[in-house]
């Protein structure tokens, strides 16, 4: 049984008396100890999908269809109280900007131990000891002194480490990390991602890594889920997906990134146009206006998700599968 299973999730926006569907039938599953990357550009619905899983959708947004299960339990059937217990307990979230996750007027120690005492039911001194241990694990030096400090006394990289320590504090089974290192410098980004991946692997924690950086996905993800304009267009095992993408959008993304390992003359092949405005829905396949392979059917009908050799893709004219797929 997967740890987290999202099935055909739709998210609607209700504003000014009108309803708009922002996420259309997104599916995703995460096993214990597995890292699944959700890749997509702004407006692809990757963050909304994570917020929906956490039960943190803003007021204007609601789940229009589909199911989210955590360890087999349908989250829609839980009471608000049960969801609150799950959140911050078995499920934790890391946001892009650590200042939004930290309370500026409470000491780091108070913020770290508050949740632990409530969720794990341990004493103040036990919680303090665990906080020191956690900060050491995430690479904060002099942890006992740091616990008495406030968020503004930490650098951006240190704050994000504290947020990771907070996410791990209540021994979650699943962490959803939304662009956890986008705001940080590359060398700090490398430190923090390596650390998060290591801690999740060692503790058997499932990790959903939401990012737009294809390099990060390549380095850390076991499986990848590519989202475009509110839908999942392709998903599968990371190596196989990078080697031979089936959806033209995935191919286009990979061809759009300059690479350090190739000769400078290799050229960039960007996808023409820009992602559609979610307020103005595109008929048929939402990628067709930018797709070189589009034909009449792509403009008229939305392609269903199809699974071949463990790869999911939603395209009427997929790229050919590799001739011989090496055994995984």
């Amino acid at each position: 049984m997967p740890l987290l299973e999202i099935e055909d999730l739709a998210i609607d926006l209700a504003r000014d008396g009108a309803r708009r569907r922002l996420v259309h039938g997104a599916s995703l599953s995460v096993e214990e100890g597995e890292t699944v990357a959700v890749v997509g550009e702004s407006g692809s619905g990757k963050s909304l999908t994570a917020l929906a899983a956490m039960g943190l959708l803003p007021e204007e947004l609601s789940i229009g269809a589909g199911r989210i299960r955590f360890e087999g339990r349908d989250l829609a059937e839980l009471t608000e109280e049960d969801r609150r217990i799950l959140r911050g307990g078995d499920m934790a979230m890391i946001f892009q900007e650590p200042m939004t996750a930290l309370n500026p007027v409470l000491s780091i120690g108070r913020q770290l131990t508050e949740g632990m005492r409530a969720k794990l039911g341990i004493s103040k001194s036990e919680a303090n000891a665990r906080a020191v241990e956690l900060l050491t694990q995430v690479g904060v030096t002099d942890p006992a002194r740091r616990l008495t400090q406030y968020p503004h006394e930490f650098s951006g990289g240190m704050r994000q480490r504290v947020v990771i320590a907070m996410a791990l504090a209540c021994r979650p089974k699943l962490i959803l990390a939304d662009e956890p290192t986008t705001a940080l410098d590359v060398t700090i980004q490398a430190q923090i991602l390596a650390l998060t991946a290591k801690l999740c692997r060692e503790n058997g924690v499932g990790l959903v890594l939401i990012t737009h950086n294809l390099g990060i996905v390549a380095r850390y993800a076991d499986r990848v889920c590519v989202m475009y304009a509110g839908g999942v267009v392709e998903a599968g095992e990371a190596r196989a997906l990078y080697r031979a993408p089936r959806h033209p959008y995935t191919r286009g993304l990979l061809d759009s990134v300059p690479r350090l390992d190739l000769d400078r003359s290799h050229g960039l092949h960007p996808i023409p146009g820009s992602p559609p405005d979610p307020m103005r829905p595109v008929p048929g396949c939402r990628f067709h206006p930018r797709c070189a392979r589009a034909e009449a059917r792509c403009r008229a009908e939305e392609p269903p998700a199809e699974v071949q050799d463990g790869r999911l893709f939603a395209c009427w004219r997929p790229l050919p599968a590799p001739v011989s797929e090496p055994a995984e």
Partner: peptide
Amino acid sequence: RALIDAAPEPDPELARAHEVIPLQGEA
């Protein structure tokens, strides 16, 4: 060298071919 190492390649084979030892500390 550390900057180049820290920038992951968009290719899982390459990105995992060598163990990356991240730079310690901050500027």
